[in-house]
């Protein structure tokens, strides 16, 4: 357990000093700041625009960070041979994978925290005060983090079996497909082909269903998120990540480092 913690902490330290990450955070904060301006030209719905654009910025830039760092988690270690320094020590391979995953999750959580602070600063700047209902966006941000947890698990899995570029393409495709699974299933049913329908149904159940995690618009309109959805999404993400990380560990256990 201590080794997993140490690998996670040093993965975080290494990632947190990456300049690309800072650039993305700055861009995200700029976007959040810009949403104040967009709000000013949208008479009457300034608050909605700010919440909608601000949370979307957190989601998009967080996703970019998750993919950019996630795909290099294992493949870069192999490519640069830094992995020899770790696996030649009494480290079990599953400890390495878990440590790397948790380290990146910690990095993303802290970055999301920084962007959230920027978002609330923008909200305060616009409203001049914060009220109890302003807690609502935190629920949406929690769901964004759950999506990151799943995306990073996919990125880690692909990183174990493929090159960084292909891993990025696959992970991004899964993220996009995950938001349109209902449409995909509907399309399959409409074709009236049992093969296509079977395939889309299979994808519907295998790929992560991110539609249920996307509550940004609802939050912007002041709609509360039910406790049931909180529980269901949390359990879904936990189960999904467990299966993916287990698959990554199985692949990694058999991997050779020439």
């Amino acid at each position: 357990m201590a080794r997993i913690g140490s690998i996670a902490w040093h993965t975080f330290k290494e990632a947190a000093r990456d300049r690309v990450l800072y650039n993305l955070i700055v861009f995200a904060l700029l976007m959040i700041g810009a949403s104040i301006l967009f709000g000013q030209i949208s008479v009457g719905i300034e608050g909605i625009i700010l919440v909608d654009l601000g949370l979307s910025s957190i989601a998009v830039f967080g996703l970019l960070m998750a993919i950019l760092i996630g795909i290099g988690l294992v493949s870069e270690e192999i490519e640069r041979r830094t992995i020899f320094n770790v696996l030649s020590k009494p480290v079990r391979r599953y400890e390495f994978i878990l440590g790397k995953y948790l380290g990146l999750l910690l990095t993303l959580s802290i970055n999301t925290g920084v962007m959230t602070a920027g978002f609330y600063l923008a909200l305060f700047f616009q409203k001049r005060h914060l009220s109890a209902e302003d807690v609502l966006p935190l629920g949406a941000i929690y769901f964004i983090l759950l999506q990151f947890a799943i995306v990073v698990a996919w990125a880690l899995f692909f990183s174990c079996i493929s090159t960084p570029v292909l891993s990025a393409v696959f992970t991004f495709s899964i993220y996009v497909a995950g938001h349109f699974l209902s449409d995909l299933q509907f399309f399959g049913e409409e074709t009236r082909s049992s093969i296509v329908s079977g395939l889309t149904t299979f994808l519907y159940y295998v790929l992560p269903n991110f539609a249920d995690f996307d509550v940004i618009t609802r939050t912007a309109h002041g709609e509360k998120i039910s406790g049931l959805l909180f529980t269901a999404n949390s359990l879904y993400a936990l189960l999904y990540v467990t299966v993916l990380i287990s698959a990554a560990v199985l692949v990694f256990e058999e991997k050779e480092f020439r």
Partner: peptide, 12 residues
């Protein structure tokens, strides 16, 4: 163990 042409994390 010292690997051949070792490499380390850039930012540490």
């Amino acid at each position: 163990f010292l690997p051949e042409n070792p490499s380390f994390y850039d930012n540490l």
